[in-house]
């Protein structure tokens, strides 16, 4: 996994609640056997019509917005456990998703792929949407080490929570497999005790 470096980037607002993983990546695109290329079908049915033409008023088709942060409504990533949702977001180029609430499985999948889910309060989320409404090119900074999200030139600085273990993993580019494999002896002992 890549190390998570401090980000200076713009943000893309998607002010819809309960965005489920079927919207992020519809099931019919889950047939690939590797992790690449899912970004093309990110939000497929909101982004393209049935003739595969871009839908002009969907935010990813709006040239005003770009950047590595997706700002989404409450309860982002609910539904299926498909990690393809996290792969689609990272493959498209997102490094951070900001929302007031994340579904559990999605949050875990994101963290396992170097995609940082930042949970903010509903008021803070509202504040971010407001900034983006008036300043599409607002410049955001995400400092994981300091656990801070702020916007240059705006009165908005958010301290966010993250599990210490996961923070260490992201900053250093470690993943859980390395750690678990290093614990095999302990795991084998546990098996012996359990089946004794």
């Amino acid at each position: 996994m890549e190390k998570f470096e401090t980000l200076h980037t713009q943000a893309v607002p998607l002010n819809i609640e309960n965005i489920d993983t079927d919207q992020i990546i519809p099931a019919r695109f889950l047939k690939a056997t590797d992790r690449k290329g899912f970004g093309d079908n990110l939000f497929r049915d909101w982004r393209y019509n049935s003739e595969n033409q871009p839908i002009a008023d969907f935010v990813l088709n709006n040239p005003k917005f770009s950047g590595k942060i997706l700002v989404a409504g409450n309860n982002f990533g609910c539904g299926s456990s498909r990690e393809h949702a996290a792969w689609a977001l990272t493959d498209y180029g997102f490094k951070v998703v900001v929302s007031s609430f994340f579904a559990d499985i999605f949050k875990g999948n994101a963290l396992n792929n170097g995609l940082l889910p930042i949970q903010v309060t509903p008021e803070e989320l509202e504040g971010i949407f407001e900034i983006l409404e008036n300043h599409a090119d607002a410049s955001f900074v995400v400092d994981l080490q300091a656990q801070k999200l702020f916007v240059d030139g705006h009165d908005l600085e958010i301290e966010f929570d993250i599990n210490t273990y996961k923070k260490t993993c992201l900053l250093n580019g470690y993943d859980d497999i390395d750690y678990l494999v290093s614990q095999k002896e302990k795991i084998s002992q546990f098996e012996k005790l359990k089946h004794a």
Partner: peptide, 22 residues
């Protein structure tokens, strides 16, 4: 409980998962 593919790989590798107790 349901898991993502990275976790499927973790269970393959160790028969364990790293999880916070809900």
């Amino acid at each position: 409980f349901g898991i993502g593919t990275s976790q499927v790989a973790q269970v393959f590798a160790s028969q364990c998962l790293l999880v916070d107790k809900p």
